[in-house]
Design a protein around this nucleic acid. Sequence first.
DNA 1: TATTGACTTGTCAAATTTTGTCTAATATAT
DNA 2: ATATATTAGACAAAATTTGACAAGTCAATA
Lengths: 99, 99
Amino acid sequence: MKFGEHIKQLREQNHLLQRQLANALDMDTAMLSKIERGERRAKKEHIPLLASLLHANERELFTIWLADQIYEIIKEESNPSEILQVVEKEIKIAKPYNL
Amino acid sequence: MKFGEHIKQLREQNHLLQRQLANALDMDTAMLSKIERGERRAKKEHIPLLASLLHANERELFTIWLADQIYEIIKEESNPSEILQVVEKEIKIAKPYNL
DNA sequence: TATTGACTTGTCAAATTTTGTCTAATATAT
DNA sequence: ATATATTAGACAAAATTTGACAAGTCAATA
């Protein structure tokens, strides 16, 4: 689930309108609408508040937020999994003993 | 292997100086130096020429170039593999029959 | 030690991208 | 028609990236 869709789903589960959530996040509804549709990216600083307001796990939300950014990079590529494998390999080199 | 290190290694294997490669890429050596050390990112358009000049596989080089960008996003995170897994899952949703 | 060559570092403005806001447009229900 | 919710488009401000330059380090060697 992409970040924006996830936010939208949580927002609806919590019976909040874009107007209400946007207000709590100090942005206008146009902005939140764009975030939900993936047209714009939420700021990192928004995540704790989003998690709190939407009764979601902050760490999980942050993970999805990061994953979404990565997805944006490779979604058009023909070999996305191969690319991710190269990244995984690099991680293992950098953290050889899983410290 | 990070993109810059990879380029440097290939450059040395091909007995080229930064000056020479930089010139062929129409940039100054300072720029190439930064690219090799990962301080700056090569442009996508540079990759075909790099592959050609360094006798490397263009597609592979491009994969490493993309992987490097992703690595930059998650390298500081405590759960990089988990994040990549979320991305992998999203890919499978988008391309369910491996088209 | 002075010079040369290879590479690195720091700084800066220009160029590009991202961001937030505003206004207007849709859509749906009353 | 009116009201409410959401989306779309346009725009400047803000932030980031980029490329270029000058000056720096370092090693080899004359």
